[in-house]
Design a protein around this nucleic acid. Structure first.
Length: 598
RNA sequence: GGGGCUGUAGUAGAGUCGGUUACAACGCCGGCCUGUCACGCCGGAGGUCGCGGGUUCGAGUCCCGUCAGCCCCGCCA
């Protein structure tokens, strides 16, 4: 039989008690982390979200409370009244924040019992993630997991106050909205009132925040859920949260400066880390050239070197053919990498294969020259030129990828990130920010045989590239920018098109016909006719940002109730079938395949 | 859609070459213990080896399929 809370009022949190509280009468409430029964004395580690404090129950001092403590088990919910006392000589526990004190309990109430949990809620037990997710409410009791969500709270709190201080208005946008072409697959919601039609959940509030600028709100911001029905990754969930901002009468540098200030403030208040401003910047072209990717990790070197011109005339047919065919031959120098085993090199070859590279050439620089399957194809002056370009010294390992530009860059760029981490060159508490700018506006989609927007269809071209929209649209650059931290894109945005004619031109370039543009985006095109101010903005991935601040490798760690890789919730068992009646109301009939659960 | 890793008491693991009754740890239950703090000591219970099929005299172990979780490619403006 449980005790009632009665008139008891909690006076302190467990983790807050220290030597300064000695002598005070306190009332504590929480969960039993552990009970240690010495036959006579019983110790209970009482836990709440602030930490743990030790309750001491002495049978001589209070037999009734001691008898109750005898029944108590792990994860039972108890309340205790007692006196904060210093621990006896030599009994201080330095591992505990509250280790200098303990509570001499005079009265104990069992508020609720608990079944033995399916896994131990201590810091020592490693539990399979599917079990953690099924019992997420128990998993969330663990301090390490709570820490991540507390970090998330600190981020949102800081962001909200910064944006408020800078005149941003928090305005909600619809969750039931209109499906748009371009971009990710939409989550659809059937309409009961208008059978046969569907709302879409927003991939982002993009168009609505632009409309708010047209309305004259000047600065908008929202911490908002977004939905994309695409496959999951360690850093991707189907519903995720953006810090979404938009500003009027600004250009790129204004947005960047405002947002740098916000990120610096977040790092100061959430981590105590000072970020040096202004942050570094790099063009997209430079990032690709030096690092092979548009999200470079700048904590280490290992930069890509373009050898295409050096090997153009060489006898190694693979390199020469790629160079002649307009591809790239690039390499990185792994300092001291000559110790890599044959298996290491095979693994690295497999690694670049994932990104489509057909091979990975390697050279070990030994004291007596090149050790390499391809050494024999190169003349002395070519060897020298390659060594010089890469700054090669004895003991180094040179790794080459030759392929069309997109594959050579990505494969070697990913290899660089991989090796940087594997070789311990990326320190966790080293935060290297860089803005990537001057993205291309469009890229050619081979499958669909048309241009698609690199950022999104509302991104403004650079002023000087506007004429290119007619002559050579593939060459036009965008007023777009991404913020990259240690190899992760944490945010991205752009200056938007505020001119109706340019927006219409953009749709045309994307192969969206006038009629389709009208049907899908007519309300935006109309709005742009009624005095849209120049405007632009950005959105940060709150989950990814929090991951980096919390130092975890999985986005699930910073989401209270995350979904599995198959986009299911192991706790609630969503998604699930619905009643036939619900479907009838919506005018929906399932295919026989769907009914069978194929 | 594709590639890879994992799946054995409640938990996390060991289980060799296919061979007797599937191990020890933590947790759980009972007993002892008045200064522990991942307390200690003694005893006990606890198994659909993910699931289905196959090979074999014999399968946790080998083969095929399947399910689930994770990592990755594609996908994610």
């Amino acid at each position: 039989m449980n005790d009632q809370l009665g008139s008891w009022k909690r006076t302190h949190y467990c983790g807050d008690l220290k030597a300064g509280n000695i002598g005070e009468q306190v009332c504590l409430m929480g969960w039993v982390q552990r009970r240690r029964d010495h036959g006579g004395l019983i110790f209970i580690d009482l836990r709440d979200r602030t930490g743990i404090v030790q309750l001491a129950l002495d049978p001589d001092r209070d037999p009734e409370a001691h008898a109750k403590a005898d029944q108590v088990r792990s994860e039972w919910v108890v309340a205790a009244i007692g006196r904060v006392s210093p621990r006896p000589e030599g009994m201080v526990n330095p591992k505990l924040k509250t280790g200098e004190v303990e509570i001499e309990v005079s009265e104990l109430r069992i508020l609720n019992q608990a079944e033995t949990p399916p896994f131990m809620l201590d810091e020592y037990t490693d539990v399979a993630e599917n079990l953690r997710l099924k019992y997420r409410y128990l998993d969330l009791r663990r301090p390490a997991v709570q820490e991540c969500l507390i970090m998330r709270h600190k981020v949102t709190r800081t962001v909200r106050s910064y944006l408020d201080e800078n005149g941003f208005l928090d305005i909600e946008t619809p969750v039931l909205t209109k499906s748009t072409p371009e971009g990710a697959r939409d989550y659809l919601v059937p309409s009961r009132v208008n059978q046969g039609t569907f709302y879409a959940l927003p991939q982002s509030p993009q168009i609505f925040k632009q409309l708010l600028m047209v309305s004259g709100f000047d600065r908008y911001a929202q911490i908002v859920k977004c939905f994309r029905d695409e496959d999951l990754r360690a850093d991707r969930q189907p519903e995720f949260t953006q810090i979404d901002c938009e500003m009027s009468f600004v250009d790129r540098d204004d947005v960047i400066a405002m947002m740098e200030g916000m990120i610096a403030r977040v790092f100061r208040e959430a981590l105590g880390v000072e970020v040096k401003l202004p942050m570094a910047r790099m063009t997209y072209a430079e990032a690709l050239d030096r690092f092979g990717v548009d999200n470079p990790d700048l904590r280490f070197g290992l930069e890509l070197v373009d050898l295409t011109d050096i090997v153009r005339e060489c006898d190694f047919k693979v390199f020469a053919d790629v160079a002649a065919g307009g591809g790239l031959v690039k390499a990185i120098n792994v300092k001291g990498g000559a110790t890599f085993s044959r298996k290491d090199l095979d693994d690295l070859t497999g690694f670049v294969g994932i990104y489509g590279a057909k091979g990975l050439a390697w050279v070990k620089i030994n004291a007596d020259g090149w050790q390499s399957p391809i050494a024999k194809f190169f003349k002395d002056e070519e060897l020298k030129a390659i060594e010089q370009a890469l700054g090669a010294e004895t003991g180094d390992l040179l790794l080459f990828v030759a392929d069309k530009a997109s594959i050579a860059n990505e494969a070697l760029g990913r290899l660089r990130q991989h090796l940087g981490h594997k070789l311990g060159m990326a320190k966790k508490d080293d935060y290297r920010f860089v803005w990537i700018t001057d993205f291309p506006l469009l890229e050619w989609d081979e499958e669909e045989k048309r241009h698609v927007a690199v950022h999104h269809p509302f991104t403004a071209p650079m002023d000087e590239d506007i004429p290119l929209l007619d002559s050579d649209p593939g060459k036009a650059r965008a007023k777009a920018y991404d913020l990259v931290l240690n190899g992760s894109e944490i945010g991205g945005g752009s200056i938007r098109i505020h001119d109706q004619a340019i927006q219409a031109k953009m749709f045309e370039l994307l192969g969206i016909g006038e009629e389709e543009a009208r049907a899908k985006f007519g309300f935006l095109l109309d709005a742009l006719k009624y005095g849209a101010p120049p405007h632009g903005g950005i959105a940060f991935g709150l989950d990814r940002l929090t991951m980096l601040l919390a130092g975890t490798d999985s986005i699930r760690d910073v989401i209270a109730f995350p979904k599995t890789q198959k986009a299911t919730c192991l706790l609630s068992e969503a998604p699930s079938p619905v009643d036939e009646k619900q479907l009838r109301e919506l005018g929906i009939r399932l295919s026989s395949r769907a009914r069978k659960g194929d």
